[in-house]
Design a protein around this nucleic acid. Sequence first.
DNA 1: GTTGACCTTAGATGTAGCTCTAAGGTTTAT
DNA 2: ATAAACCTTAGAGCTACATCTAAGGTCAAC
Lengths: 133, 133
Amino acid sequence: MKISELEKRTGINAHTLRYYEKSGLLKASMRSVNNYRIYSEDDLITALFIKRCKECGFSLAQTAALLAIKHDKSLHVCAEAKSITESKLQEISQQIEQLQQMEGTLTELQAYCCGGQESAEFCTIISTLEAGK
Amino acid sequence: MKISELEKRTGINAHTLRYYEKSGLLKASMRSVNNYRIYSEDDLITALFIKRCKECGFSLAQTAALLAIKHDKSLHVCAEAKSITESKLQEISQQIEQLQQMEGTLTELQAYCCGGQESAEFCTIISTLEAGK
DNA sequence: GTTGACCTTAGATGTAGCTCTAAGGTTTAT
DNA sequence: ATAAACCTTAGAGCTACATCTAAGGTCAAC
């Protein structure tokens, strides 16, 4: 299939597919006579693999590492895959924690603000941000 | 005080302080004879305000909006401040949700992988990413 | 009087992951 | 045969927020 069909079947933008190729993630397995990219069913699977990696939050570098394992399973061990997911999991937990911290602060900031048409002179959001904790 | 002292007292890099000025967030209230930025105590308060906004996750644009309220409270109303925090809160909740979704997927992905020195041939992480849900 | 620590500006660089443009070649349908 | 819809490349642009560089001016201490 040509790039636009792969785009349709994966939902990945053709520009992005070319970008993935440049990044070493997904190379079309053939080129037509006139140099068009021709993707195989295997390429489609790889493209969907990449898409799922993205949904899990993996960076392109991590995705590349996972793809390397996928492409040559016998040369790799479970520990490699697991260490990638573990580090991603840790990263995500940290991000969640940070966001929850912000969420807490913001909720508190909100709590006493009337949110109405009163002058901001006594707005607790502003005064709290001014005063700090 | 000069820029390096403000840097010390706020923990905000001098480069960043200049960047904030260019972005319209924090202008030194004076310049010395030789064109050095001279910051007042009020400027220090503003710098700390910006820092706290950052800790809450506000973008520079949102911070600028909050600063505008702070600088001229009588011209603004609580509703403005509250709408900014509300939209930020919403954004953060969404991000948390997304991350938790990823966290769940990753945890599931991990669950059945031995993580050992076995060949990745039967690694559940890889095969799950291949198969999709 | 010179060394080192400060300050200034404009503008380049970095991150991550796309997304788009320009300029051109190919294919398909009518 | 011509218009629309495809394809190619190199490289620019985008976002958000800094961070750094180059080239130069100023100041205080020894």
